[in-house]
Design a protein around this nucleic acid. Structure first.
Lengths: 191, 191, 191, 191
DNA sequence: GATGAATGAGTCTTCATTCAT
DNA sequence: CATGAATGAAGACTCATTCAT
């Protein structure tokens, strides 16, 4: 039985992901959550604070997983796959957060209130970059691989999945992760 | 010498791409364009119409190029590379449109006014899918390649470049296209 | 040991005096009083009723004193001094009420609920006016003295003291009364 | 023919003076000014900015007059009378500003936006205090005169007049100034 | 075409008050 | 009596759009 607060965060995630931070009206969110608009402010300071809550939990969980993976003794290739798997799990678990970040991340992460989140975002980026550099250094991957370019690509491909992936679709989230990993590691060619 | 109308569209593209459709205020756009807010409405019906103009030109140009490529006698592999090249050129030429679509495409393409654009978007999608299916059928690419999945990935990777690519950065737009093509075709691995 | 109710009235007086009736939030008052906002309504009907309580006790006490003075056999000069002394005592004893009346009296005394208070206010005014007229009639004071003008001046001067007078300042409340009396009776000149 | 902006400031002064800063609703002000509520924001940033405009003009004018008087070669007694006259003129000319300061000055002068006004307020205070000290030093006034106490009293008496004085009442503004001056210099007694 | 004051519906937010526990 | 989540009316402010000049 979810608490009222959790119900609000859930509703907010759904609406935010669909309509963006600015496009989402607090009335819509509270309607979805089954409360009146004023009641929102018992639980959250502002619409911004609500968005923060939506996003923060996701980032904390994601960062925990990323640190675990980064701290393991896997080789770069397996680590890369594992990061993809973890990222996909995040999409399945927090589609609202990922959707919101996808359409409004640029705006939100610049807000003072989101400084800590921006920090976590950066640590996650550094972990990706670290793995990519390690794989390049070990000769496992191409010498001219551009870690920054690849990081951005991976991030955008994975996040984009939130727009269409569903529990009931063709792929389980783990299958999706596997396909993405294969595509990114080996490309679409048969060569 | 750009016309006044073109100056407005340019300004709108820049602001829309940065702040999103809803986050962009028409006052900001007209300030950037060097006119007063009221004057905008001598050139465009509404903010929506302005966004449409920003996006429509991009899609028309893109679709022309896509049709040309699709109508050529290239084999799927070369066609794939060519589509990437054309897409990257679009980013370089219409960063405003691509940025706007990236953050507000979901909202805009659902508007009645954007029906024709949604149509073009779909034709572009079908061209991508067609190429991917052809490459799979010809055995050039993996048999289990999922055209839809790959199409979304390619689209998201390419569009994401608009957030950071610049004329003065490390890559020319053609180098960028080449790198993306290599990454998507062969992956990051050395295998 | 003050009752809970008295603690609330005390807190309300402090906050009302500082922030005005409208500027004071009931949450602030209940915080100050050490209860939760809902609990206030076990003791008072409404914020207005609370303000009434703050002000009413002050007026009743003030009116009792004024009637005693007015009913005494003092001559107008001594009576005038006595009214000032009594008024200053009121400031020392009920700074909350005086402060509230100073910034929100205009608003509050017009409320139906405050009719009785407005009545007492008027009786106090009539006592002041009576004394002033008596002093003028007896020749003790200037023949062209305007009772209404002087009443307002005295009232405003005395009430203003609540903004700065403190038990621990330069003046005891009785010294303050004496100085005010001297100033109002004889002015600041040496003549 | 007053500009629209002036009409708004005038309306705001009236409403603010009557209902206080917090009690005044911007809808009331704009109704009074004959515009719709949104139009206010073409002319002023916020309700606060509007209050600032109401008050600032008054203070600037008052300070100009005060400096002129303080810079003249009048002796303290005449200067004192002149300051009263000037203050009363201010009431007649800017009743809105004085009324607003009377009920909400405490709140407003603490706002960052009002820092310059608080500054002017302080300079005016110092001019009053300077005159009072000069008169005390010259022996014209009582040796135990407390400049601060008298300043506050004068200020409160004069400001209070805004609640009742009217052009069509018993006193012209100059007569009022004269009466106040006489009362404050010589008191109400005949002695 | 350009202007910019005016519009007014719509948004987020506040806060006195209620009431089930 | 106390709690504090919930209410909902009302407030300040925004902003795309209009239109007389």
């Amino acid at each position: 039985m979810p608490t009222r607060r959790e119900a609000i965060v859930k509703a907010a995630g759904d609406i935010f992901a669909t309509k963006g931070f600015m496009g989402a009206k607090v009335r819509e969110i509270t309607d979805e959550a089954g409360i009146l608009s004023g009641s929102l402010y018992h639980h959250f300071d502002s619409k911004e604070a609500l968005a923060l809550e939506v996003v923060q939990g996701y980032y904390e969980s994601m960062l925990r997983s990323f640190r675990t993976v980064a701290g393991s003794s896997l080789d770069p290739g397996d680590m890369f796959v594992e990061l993809i798997r973890v990222s996909c799990k995040g999409i399945a678990q927090s589609p609202g957060a990922v959707g919101l970040l996808l359409n409004s991340g640029h705006y939100l992460l610049a807000l003072p209130r989101f400084a800590a989140v921006a920090c976590m975002n950066d640590e996650i980026r550094r972990i990706w970059i670290g793995v990519l550099e390690a794989g390049r250094a070990s000769g496992e991957w191409k010498a001219d691989l551009d870690p920054d370019l690849v990081y951005r690509s991976v991030r955008d491909v994975l996040a984009g999945a939130v727009r269409w992936w569903s529990d009931e679709g063709r792929f389980s989230i783990d299958e999706l992760a596997e396909r993405y990993a294969e595509m990114l590691l080996y490309g679409i060619g048969t060569a």
